[in-house]
Amino acid sequence: MTKKQLEMKHPYERFLRKERMPHIWCEGCGNGIILNCFARALDELDIDLNNVVVVSGIGCIGRISGYVNADSFHTTHGRPIAFATGAKLAKPELKVVVISGDGDLFAIGGNHFIHAARRNVDIKVICANNFVYGMTGGQYGPTTPLEAWTTTTPYGNIEQAFNLVHLAAASGAVYVARWTALHVRRLTESIKKALQKEGFSFVEVISQCPEIYGRHNKMKTAISMMKWFKEASEVRNFSDPAKADISPSRIIVGEFVDVEKPSYGRLLREMKAKLQTE
């Protein structure tokens, strides 16, 4: 390695708390890709990091708030959306982004998700969906596919999985997209769209957990999971999110919702302005 190369800094280094690197995530974990795409989105939009707040919950991806070089809060299990709602309404000039996992946002925190979407609070939710509770060692969750093996479905999963984009769309989100961790460019574009859009925006990232999920479900390496994403993904932009399946043979990805609707914050400001003039 030449001296010049040794001095080279990664272009997204300024978005990271460098002293906390390397992150705790396993080799080939999709969480690092999500962090990477989020940094790229911030870079390409040239957003002032002083105005960004990253809120996370519990689980592997919950640690992401500690890695982003912005104001950040690692909340309790399931509550990042409720916390983010308070932060955004108290200081509307902030860009408040929740980045958390499928278990955190849709099992223990499911109620907050549907209500924040219904209210159309102007927050951005990025969900790393890895089909499993990784940090506790691989138990099944609300997105685990039927028949999958986890430590708490030793005879195969008999629960139906949530379709997160369908749930988000039905709950009232103004922007809904799903990509896999392999769709780095489209994922980055969707994060950028979400960041620029007014209202509750949701980006689901199908993310590989090779250590805890993949190797128990016939995908021994991170690369084999990424190959599954490559082979199974089918882009169906603005198709019916109710039909956006995830199965071994097919993962429907794309943008599903992109509509305009006044956010809670806007309606609140309008109400207050009206009161002041009365």
Binding site: P11, M21, P22, H23, W25, G32, I33, N36, V184, T188
Partner: peptide
């Protein structure tokens, strides 16, 4: 730039 974007560990980039 795909390698830059897909690296989970910010360990590779191209210029």
């Amino acid at each position: 730039g795909f390698c830059t974007a897909v690296c989970p560990d910010f360990a590779i980039f191209t210029i």
